[in-house]
Computed example of a mutant assay.
Amino acid sequence: MEALRPKGAPDAGLSKSALYRAARAGEYDRIARGIYRPADAPAADWDWIEAATRRTDATICLTSALAIHDLTDTIPDALDVAIPRGARVPATQAAISWHLFAKATFDLGRTQIPIPGSELQIGLYSPERCIADTFRLRGDLGYDLGREALRQWLRRGGKPARLIAIAARLPRAEGPVLQALELLT
């Protein structure tokens, strides 16, 4: 079952107060402020559910996306989630690091994936987009993260032409990506 919010409780046949009583009785788990799931629902990542519930355009990015694609050994402290620049950053209880990406390039390399154990979906950037972003934001993320991910991606048969095509569309990414590719290939 999908995450339930108090304003959607009538659609599930409950009043708001009945939802709160059911949560106190243990029939629903409180994921975050205003987000509930049935207690017998399959296991799911509550951070992903909260991000997807708060913002329908939430997209897993940077270190978190690289970890999902198995391109880094780094374990992120918080879930990295991108939203379009100019959007309101929601208040969350989960360990979510919100990043504002330019509206013009926000959908570049973005796909929707199902959240395991839930009916919700969340966005995820492609490996090429993640690598380009790590080079673009290397001052904040560190220089080694992008190089490590690029090495892993190339070992798996990644196509440099696809990476360069994406990096060319992102500001401050093409030069560093080309330079790293020259060194590694």
Rank of each mutant, 00 (worst) to 15 (best):
R138S: 15
I60M: 13
L178R: 14
L124Q: 09
I31W: 14
A65F: 01
Y143I: 02
D140F: 11
R155W: 11
G117A: 05
R5K: 13
Y20D: 03
A132R: 12
F101C: 09
R55D: 03
L170G: 02
A58E: 01
S118M: 04
T53K: 07
R151Q: 12
P176E: 15
F106R: 05
V81R: 06
R172Y: 14
E50L: 08
D73P: 04
K103P: 02
L184F: 04
R85T: 05
P114G: 13
E119L: 15
A41F: 03
R156N: 15
A168F: 06
L66I: 08
A132L: 15
A82E: 03
A102T: 11
S64F: 08
C61W: 01
W48A: 02
I75F: 11
A167D: 07
D107F: 12
G117H: 00
P114S: 15
A149Y: 00
G34A: 13
L137I: 09
L62N: 02
L145R: 09
A91N: 10
M1A: 06
R88I: 08
P42D: 00
Y125F: 08
G158N: 13
L163S: 05
R129T: 05
P10T: 11
E182C: 03
F106S: 04
Q179Y: 14
A65M: 03
I68T: 14
A25N: 05
